[in-house]
């Protein structure tokens, strides 16, 4: 049942049609989540007793950092599916995720650095999380560079899938080693948000923002995948039929 759904969903014409139907709903959902998250985060949540209002950047920083990891895993899994079962849509999802993920990683880095200024008095601190995030950005850049370097896009997708899988095995090792490096070299001088007690009024908007970011990723993914699909399948019959209908 599930497999049948996967096969049906991964047929390009079906995906193209159903994604068009999904997009408006997703956009509405995104706006609702974002609106509530922003309102809750910027207006109703109380100011932090230590950091004042500057802590509010976590409503962008933390969800962006979550997404940067999440998207890498999605990319690797769909790449692996494409590699093993040769499902074209999985390849497309994998590579379409890469630049969205890289953008989220970049956003997490920028907001982290903005947050660092009032907190630590410096735009950049070699904090374990920021450093891991930076290395993650390098991994994304490698994926994007490799994909654009190989001309044949099917081959490129497979190469990227291999690299993403290697990366996914490595991320925990990198993360752990960076964390270790950090404790060795800096001791426990800087800790942020490790306080387990985050006020419930602060937490709920954060979860809404996280939801909004997920939906945004999904929208961006669908849009990019549709583009990529059109480009790759430009000679396919279903696209001709699609164009006929448009006329």
């Amino acid at each position: 049942m599930f497999m049948r759904f996967i096969y049906k969903f991964s047929s390009p014409p079906y995906f193209y049609a159903i994604s068009a139907k999904m997009l408006p709903w997703l956009t509405v959902l995104f706006l609702v989540l974002l609106g509530y998250g922003l309102y809750g985060g910027l207006v109703t949540a109380p100011a932090d007793y230590q950091q004042g209002d500057s802590f509010r950047i976590i409503y962008v920083h933390v969800p962006a950092a979550w997404m940067s990891m999440f998207i890498y895993v999605v990319m690797a899994i769909s790449g692996g599916i494409g590699l093993v079962w040769r499902i074209k849509l999985a390849e497309i999802v994998s590579i379409s995720s890469a630049s969205v993920g890289a953008s989220f990683t970049f956003l997490a880095l920028v907001t982290g650095s903005l947050w660092g200024k009032p907190m630590w008095g410096a735009w950049w601190v070699w904090d374990a999380r920021l450093t891991s995030e930076l290395i993650l950005l390098f991994l994304y850049l490698g994926i994007i560079g490799l994909y654009s370097g190989i001309e044949d896009k099917r081959t490129a997708s497979r190469a990227v899938a291999i690299l993403a899988l290697v990366g996914v095995v490595n991320i925990p090792i990198i993360h752990y080693s960076v964390e270790w490096w950090n404790t060795l070299h800096q001791g426990a001088t800087v800790t942020k948000l490790d306080k387990p007690s985050i006020h419930i009024d602060m937490l709920i908007p954060l979860l809404f923002m996280a939801g909004a970011f997920k939906v945004y990723y999904f929208i961006a993914l669908l849009l990019r995948s549709r583009n990529e699909l059109l480009e790759r399948e430009q000679n396919a019959k279903w696209i001709d039929e699609l164009l006929e209908n448009v006329k």
Partner: peptide
């Protein structure tokens, strides 16, 4: 270099 260096990080750290 872009592909390899991030993967070299753990071994350099340890």
């Amino acid at each position: 270099a872009i592909l390899v260096l991030p993967l070299y990080v753990p071994i350099l750290i340890f």
